[in-house]
Every structure is written in structure tokens, then in C-alpha cells.
Design a protein around this nucleic acid. Structure first.
Length: 450
RNA sequence: UCCGACUUAGCUCAGCCGGUUAGAGCAUCUGACUGUUAAUCAGAGGGUCCACAGUUCAAGUCUGUGAGUCGGAGCCA
């Protein structure tokens, strides 16, 4: 990576200084030795470089300092860069000098196996290990791909508020806090309503920030605090919305393939699966999906009144759960968009399909390899009367939504948008087992430390 | 909120049908070693068996209650 801040060399740029004496600044990743020969793997955030100290070639004092280094000690090591096929990474440093900042004692995360509970308690240190380091670099790349994609397509970044006066969709449980004399405030579960307002001002906008859900979810794909990007576009209908979602996801995946090969290799990710993520993706309507489920005998587990369970054909009108989505996705090796869900199971602001008022112009994008839902979106209701009717029907406080209704009063236009979950996308691309591994400090129902 | 699992050394785990002084590997410390990749070899130290109550001659092991953690469902990104 080009940078003007090159006052010292970093490990990822070692290839450009072969034969020269340089000083690396970092932390001891691992040490091993064989008497007069000592190996120190040094990491500096950009990579890992093996440094070799051979006693007969060095001052007694320098060799003893090298020998005293422990895992995660902070140190600057000077030496000559050499190409060395035996070294991981291909380059090696022949040590000539060392400056110790701190000898670290009893670093808890050893190169041996650990359980996730232990690692999560040491999340602040776990981030230094190779797998987590690779995942965090992929997360950074996904975020950059998202910003590049929108910035390059005429979108403007418009931040939406995190403190909000009311529930956005009225369904999910929110974190609550006192807000001076104005009563209760809630942490935002979506910036969408505000994005609709800024889209009416700037045409195409996106909000990208943290979002909060107080649901007591305990699964490997849920966080209570996660990052979501939400584009909102004036004069986009549902088809435009789905096209944009496909373009975005294709761009993100291809960008990671282009810029994160070493990270994907560290994670042992099957690249060929990601290479297949090319437009066009699969699409099917909810009704087609229900038909497919019943044709393929994917039954719905239904609890009877007496507590027993029975398996029934999937009834039109019921929302899909994880088992249905997984069954549908098993047949695909790239994402699939399911659109036109029953209006009853979807949010109040989604526009009904003029051709079939029973369904909403909604869409979800499911990712393959069991990654599940990464996008949810819709064309928005743009008729004042229809939106007001929905608000009243859902028993939402009309006053709180007056500004939102105003958008349908003063120059209402067809418009659409969606939300893409950053962590779910990173989890899919990196192949991480659990969503808690793809955000530096995950917030989950039973964990807020560290 | 519902269902299920787990808790023994710093870490990962074993511990039989309840039976003597609690086991291994790794990590740590000491020593040997010129190419290690989770090095190897020799030695040393390291335990409130999650907590409380109960059954029993005897509980890490059986029973009950509680706590903590994890997984799944629902909700959704």
C-alpha cells in the first residue's frame, strides 16, 4: 500500500528492501531456538517476519537479549533482509541489533488450542492472532468496497441519528435511555426512515453506521450492536433496488478477491466459491419459493395446542425461518433474492404490489454456503393515504411519524432502498464460524466485556 | 422467552460401576542442542474438581437448587 508515512519499513514492504539493513518495530509473535540459533517471529500489524540470530555472529549481549524475548514483548529488531524460502513469507531478517521496549510476562494466548470462552474473555489480545488479524483486514476491505461503490455511483453519505424518539419499525425490542426532559430515547435499529428524507434532498444517499437491537438473540448470526449500510434512492422501483443490491454484493466480493488473497489464504477460504459470485444472481418470488418448498417436501414444524409437533405443508402467508431459507439456498452457489413477500409479515412502510395487494414490494438477499440473509429491502410506500392507513392499522403513534408522512405530502416519488449487514457479509466472505469473530468487540446478550 | 449441553492445573481435556495420595499434553522455570515452523530431549513447580445442600462408611463421580458459559429456536442485518 502506498503511504507517505514511511519513516520506518513495515513487513508487508520487505520485498522492496532485500539486501538492506532495516529496523522493524513490532511485537514478538513466537520464539523458538536451538542452542546458538534463535528464531523470533516478529509481527508489526502489516505481517509477520522471521528474524534469525546466530550466536557466533553477534555480541554476547545482543544474543542474550534475543534469547530473553517472550511472546508479545515489544521490540525493534535491526537486521539485513534476505530472501529465504524456508521462512514463512519468503523473507528473513539476519539480526544485527535489538532494542527492547518491554518484556511481556505470561501472555495468556499461547500458540496452542483455546476454547472460545477463554478467547472471548481475552478478545483485546485475541485480535493479535493470525486468524483474527486476517478477518479484521477483510472487514476493513469490505467497508472500503462499500464506500467506494456508493461514492463512485453518485451516492452521498448522509449519517442518520443514533438516538431516536421512537421505534422505527415498531416491532423489534430497542435499547432505551433517558433523554433530558424530553422523556425516553432509543438507540436506532435502522437509519432508513431518515435516509428516505435525505434521499428526497440529495437523490441517492447511503447511511453507514452502527445499529442496535435489544432482541435476546443467541445465534451465530446475531449481534446486539452491528454495522449496517443503507442506501436509499429516489425514483428507484423494486427492480432497480434488486439490481443495485446485486451490483453492490458482486463488487464487494470481487474487491476482496482482488485485495485480500493473503488474508483469505490464512483463513483457508475456498476461493472458487467466491469467484462464482457474479451477476446475475438467482431471483424468485415468495410465492415461487413456497411452491418450491412444497414440491421438495420441506415441511414446516408446527406446534399443536397439546404441545406435540406435527409437520405440515408450508402455508402461503407464513414468514420463512432459517430452515426454509437454508433449504432453498442449498441448490445455489451464488446469492438469491426472494421478493414480493406477504404484506402482513412485512414492515408498514413497504409498498404493496399494485398487481397483487396481498404482497409487498419487499426483497431479501440470501447468501450461499449457509450464510443466510445479508440484505433486506423494499420499495417504499409513497402514497400519503396508504402510508397513514398502515400506521393506524399497526397502532403506531401518528404524531411521531408526521415528519415521515410529510415526505409523501411534498413531492412524493417512487423510491426504494435496502440494508446490508456488514458483519454478516464479512462472516460469509471470510468463512468465519461465528459472527462474534468478525467485529473487533462484539456486543452480545451475555457479553459486553471487553 | 423456550429447548438442550457444558463447568476438573495458566490453557485444552481424560477421570470406568462411588473406593487409597487427582491424571495427560501444552504453557511456565532450569539444563542440552546451528534451521526452528505447535521443535526435540532431561528435570522441577503448579489443584477451593463452579457454589451450596443432600444421599452414603466413602462423592470429582449420584440427587436437588443456584450461578456462569455455550449452542439452537423465535426476531432480524
Amino acid at each position: 500500500m502506498a503511504s507517505k508515512y514511511t519513516s520506518y519499513i513495515t513487513i508487508e514492504r520487505l520485498g522492496s528492501v532485500v539486501g538492506q539493513e532495516v529496523t522493524l518495530h513490532g511485537w514478538v509473535y513466537d520464539t523458538t531456538g536451538k542452542g546458538k540459533l534463535q528464531f523470533v517471529k516478529l509481527r508489526d500489524g502489516s505481517g509477520v517476519c522471521q528474524c534469525v540470530a546466530f550466536k557466533p555472529n553477534l555480541d554476547e549481549e545482543v544474543f542474550e537479549q534475543i534469547r530473553s524475548l517472550t511472546q508479545e514483548s515489544s521490540v525493534s529488531i535491526t537486521g539485513t533482509v534476505r530472501e529465504e524460502p524456508r521462512a514463512p513469507g519468503g523473507y528473513e531478517l539476519d539480526v544485527t541489533g535489538v532494542k527492547i521496549y518491554q518484556i511481556a510476562a505470561d501472555y495468556p494466548i499461547t500458540p496452542k488450542e483455546h476454547g472460545t470462552e477463554f478467547l472471548m474473555e481475552h478478545r483485546h489480545l485475541w485480535l493479535r492472532s493470525a486468524r483474527q488479524h486476517a478477518i479484521m483486514r477483510i472487514r476493513s476491505a469490505v467497508a472500503k468496497a462499500i464506500r467506494d461503490f456508493f461514492d463512485g455511483n453518485g451516492f452521498r453519505l448522509q449519517d442518520s441519528p443514533i438516538l431516536t424518539p421512537n421505534a422505527c419499525e415498531g416491532t423489534s425490542t430497542l435499547f432505551e435511555t433517558e433523554y433530558f426532559e424530553l422523556g425516553k430515547a432509543y438507540l436506532s435499529q435502522s437509519g432508513q426512515l431518515y435516509a428516505e428524507a435525505t434521499a428526497m434532498a440529495l437523490g441517492r444517499v447511503y447511511t453507514f453506521g452502527p445499529t442496535f437491537r435489544a432482541e435476546k438473540s443467541k445465534t451465530r448470526r446475531h449481534l446486539t450492536e452491528f454495522w449496517m449500510v443503507e442506501p436509499e434512492m429516489a425514483y428507484f422501483d423494486l427492480n432497480d433496488d434488486m439490481d443495485l443490491a446485486e451490483d453492490l454484493v458482486e463488487y464487494i466480493v470481487q474487491y476482496c478477491l482482488k485485495t485480500c488473497q493473503p488474508e483469505l489464504a490464512t483463513l483457508g477460504r475456498d476461493i472458487s466459491k467466491l469467484e462464482k459470485v457474479r451477476r446475475p444472481f438467482h431471483r424468485m418470488s415468495y410465492s415461487e419459493a413456497v411452491e418450491w418448498l412444497n414440491k421438495n417436501n420441506v415441511k414446516l414444524n408446527k406446534k399443536n395446542d397439546d404441545g406435540t409437533e406435527s409437520q405440515i405443508d408450508f402455508p402461503w402467508g407464513e414468514d420463512f425461518g432459517a430452515p426454509q431459507e437454508e433449504a432453498i439456498m442449498e441448490q445455489f452457489d451464488k446469492p438469491c433474492i426472494i421478493h414480493r413477500y406477504p404484506a402482513e409479515v412485512k414492515a408498514f412502510y413497504m409498498k404493496r404490489d399494485p398487481e397483487n395487494p396481498k404482497v409487498a414490494l419487499a426483497m431479501d438477499m440470501l447468501a450461499p454456503e449457509g450464510a443466510g440473509e445479508i440484505i433486506g429491502g423494499s420499495q417504499r410506500e409513497d402514497s400519503y393515504d396508504a402510508l397513514l392507513e398502515r400506521i393506524l392499522h399497526e397502532n403506531l403513534p401518528q404524531e411521531a411519524f408526521q415528519w415521515y408522512l410529510d415526505l409523501r405530502k411534498f413531492g412524493s416519488v417512487p423510491h426504494s432502498g435496502f440494508g446490508l449487514g456488514l458483519e454478516r457479509t464479512v462472516k460469509w466472505i471470510s468463512g468465519a464460524e461465528h459472527i462474534r469473530e468478525v467485529i473487533p468487540f462484539p456486543r452480545m446478550i451475555y457479553r459486553i466485556v471487553p
